[in-house]
Design a protein around this nucleic acid. Structure first.
Length: 156
DNA sequence: TTAGGTAGTCTCG
DNA sequence: CGAGACTACCTAA
């Protein structure tokens, strides 16, 4: 595998399944709506590529990026909480809800809107009984990727 | 398995 | 703005 900026293409050379996820991660959201997700000048992209490469080698390598994903105040709080979940661990929607003084369903809503899956690790959030969802899907290829990520981190 | 409760967001009008 | 209809949910029965 090798990564080549921009991130969307970076995905294209990973293994079959992760490919589409990484494309989603940085492709449409970042490149088509820069005013809503004002990240990608060249240097941060290279940093992201470097950190992604490190993460795939070992999930202990996390992400440290100057992110400013666009979202409501509540969504910002949820995404912030997600970034505090260590690799290899999971939380349920309900646990996060209790921690934020909200409801499980509302947390699920915010996770669904996460524009930077993987970097903001929404894959570490599962339902109390069941796997939850990923990238707006509750089944299909996106879920296969969620499982792959959790396995990669040793959480499954 | 379902029924009802929940909070945040979106869509109409 | 306001009502209603969505959800990557949860708990009790």
């Amino acid at each position: 595998m090798y990564f080549d900026s921009p991130v969307g293409r970076l995905a294209a050379h990973f293994d079959g399944e992760l490919l589409c996820r990484l494309e989603f991660l940085a492709g449409p959201e970042l490149e088509q709506a820069p005013e809503r997700a004002p990240v990608p000048t060249k240097a941060p992209m290279q940093t992201l590529a470097r950190q992604l490469r490190a993460y795939f080698i070992s999930p202990a390598n996390g992400f440290d990026l100057p992110l400013q994903p666009a979202g409501t105040a509540f969504q910002q709080r949820v995404w912030q909480a997600l970034r505090r979940i260590p690799a290899g661990e999971t939380r349920t929607y309900g646990e996060l809800a209790a921690q934020l003084g909200s409801s499980a369903r509302a947390v699920g809503n915010a996770c669904r809107r996460n524009p930077l899956p993987l970097v903001v690790p929404c894959h570490r959030v599962v339902a109390a009984s069941g796997p939850g969802g990923f990238c707006g899907q509750t089944r299909g290829p996106a879920m296969a990727i969620k499982h792959w990520l959790l396995r990669h981190e040793g959480a499954a």
